[in-house]
Amino acid sequence: MPSETAPQERVWMSFPRPGVTLGETDTDRAAGFATWSAVAAAVADFEPVTMLVDPVAADAAAQHLRADIATVPAPVGEFWMRDTGPTFVLGQDGRLGAVDWVFNGWGDHDWANWLPDRPTARTVAEMAGAEVVSSALVNEGGGIHVDGEGTVLLTRTVQLDPRRNPEATQGTVEVEMARTLGATTPIWLPRGLHRDMDSLGTSGHVDIVATIASPGVLLLHSQEDPSHPDHAIMAHIREVLEAATDARGRHFEILDLPAPATLQDGEGWVDYSYVNHLVVNGGVIACGYGEDRADARAREILAAAYPGRKVVTVDARELFARGGGIHCITQHQPVSGPAALASLNGQGAASAAAQTSHTTQGGVR
Rank of each mutant, 00 (worst) to 15 (best):
P7W: 05
Q8H: 14
E9S: 15
F15G: 04
P16A: 04
P18C: 01
G23C: 05
E24S: 12
E24V: 06
T27K: 11
R29I: 06
A30T: 15
V39R: 02
A42S: 13
V43R: 07
V49M: 05
A57C: 10
A60N: 13
A61M: 11
A62T: 15
A62W: 02
A62Y: 09
H64S: 15
D68W: 06
P75M: 13
G77Y: 03
G77M: 10
D83C: 08
Q92E: 14
G94K: 09
L96D: 01
D100P: 03
W101D: 00
V102I: 12
G105P: 00
G107K: 04
W114T: 09
L115E: 14
P116G: 07
T120P: 12
A121I: 10
V124I: 15
G129F: 09
G129Y: 07
A130I: 03
E131T: 15
L137F: 11
V138F: 13
I144F: 10
I144L: 15
V146G: 04
D147S: 08
G150I: 07
T151S: 10
T155C: 15
T155A: 14
T155F: 03
V158C: 14
Q159A: 12
R163T: 10
G171L: 01
E176Y: 07
R179I: 08
T180H: 10
T180L: 15
L181E: 03
L181Y: 11
I187N: 01
I187R: 02
W188D: 00
L189N: 00
R191G: 00
L193E: 03
M197G: 06
S199A: 14
L200Y: 12
V209C: 10
A210G: 11
S214M: 05
G216D: 00
S222Y: 11
Q223D: 11
M234F: 11
I237L: 02
I237S: 01
E242K: 10
G249E: 07
T262G: 02
G268K: 13
V270W: 02
N276T: 02
N281S: 12
N281C: 08
G282D: 10
I285H: 07
G288C: 04
Y289L: 03
A298D: 07
E300A: 15
Y306L: 00
G308Y: 04
T313V: 15
D315S: 08
A321S: 12
G325S: 12
Q331H: 11
H332L: 04
P334K: 11
A340W: 04
A340Y: 07
L341N: 12
L341P: 02
L341G: 08
G346Q: 02
Q355Y: 00
Q361V: 08
